[in-house]
Design a protein around this nucleic acid. Sequence first.
DNA 1: GCTTGCGTTAACAAAAATGTTAAACAAAAA
DNA 2: TTTTTGTTTAACATTTTTGTTAACGCAAGC
Lengths: 205, 205
Amino acid sequence: MKIEEAQTEQVIKEKAKELFFKKGLIKTTTQEIADAAGVNRALIHYYFRSREHMLSILLDEAMEEKRERVKSILSFDLPFREKIARYIDAIITYNMTYPYLENFIISETVRNKDRTEAYCARNQSRSSDLIRDQLAEEIQQGRLAPITPEHFLVNLIALCNYPMLAKPILRTIHGMTEEAYHEFLLERKQVIYMTIFNEEMPSVS
Amino acid sequence: MKIEEAQTEQVIKEKAKELFFKKGLIKTTTQEIADAAGVNRALIHYYFRSREHMLSILLDEAMEEKRERVKSILSFDLPFREKIARYIDAIITYNMTYPYLENFIISETVRNKDRTEAYCARNQSRSSDLIRDQLAEEIQQGRLAPITPEHFLVNLIALCNYPMLAKPILRTIHGMTEEAYHEFLLERKQVIYMTIFNEEMPSVS
DNA sequence: GCTTGCGTTAACAAAAATGTTAAACAAAAA
DNA sequence: TTTTTGTTTAACATTTTTGTTAACGCAAGC
């Protein structure tokens, strides 16, 4: 039977994203995706040509979405520390809605160098350029220990993303439940700010 | 022809580790491993039963080795900051000899929860317990902003490991050559210490 | 020299996944 | 009603990879 009005493509995409990026079932087969979407497997090829091609599309969309939400924050006209506080918040919040997206991005960029190129090509402005001036000023005013924008950003992203990437290990090592780990991740917003700036994060009013 | 004296098993292991952990070819097939080792593919099954089983063994060995090198440092009787400085150095150095080991560990622990359990079970003493007292003292003496041992360690490991995990992306974004990235990683030893303690790392004498 | 057993190989079998096709179907247009 | 067009399905084909087996060879011990 025909599923209402050409929504099939969307349903497939959403279910696939759910399996890949939310549940972390990175090896999910086309058959499993089809099952989750309640459609015949051939439709995946009908709409997306191949599994590989579908992956490209899903990743592009997800990365684009994350980039929009997160990176634009660095372009806002805001005091440096507030900007960074928002950046941390945005990354962690986004990570929590797609807990395995970073895992996926990383394993795909390791596996497929071309995809890395494509992804980065679309990233016109380097994040490091967006903070360069403000960071320099912070340092010059003696409010922050000297650090290059590249290291500063890697620090920031590492502190935000790693706990998602290594979630299975960290949860197990520290014997945390899913909820406890959720809490832990939320705490990290303050912890990260503190670690970076060595001062309390101003509470959100 | 018979390859000299039962070394075959070792050769296979080493070549497999090279492909998986050094070159990051995570999807390498048994055939490719056999080729790299210069042996018939059936030997892989002869020695390791299945691909899956071989993976277990390789990962166990690699993780065990890393754990020994790195984690024991936290047990040494040393001043806190020196201990941490050595820890950073050990992790980064080890990461550079097996650039893709962390990628592998993470994707395997996401894919296979049982392996996570097994891995963590062997980790008798939690790292967080090894630093708890000294960390508390640092904080109590006002030399460090309050932080739980769990967050402190996650910070530390995140800062050390993430740049390896995301190497393809980071290198491309910042347009670094392999050598430049190598330098970048070495610089991070100081950067991380600085970020954690907010003071220069004492130079190694 | 014969046997025994491990290491090795090629050839085969099976499994798991992707990709293709022709035909059925449903809805809108003619 | 018939045609047409885009969607969906089942059945088939192909590819890729893993796993198995039977036989061969070599070296040690009898």
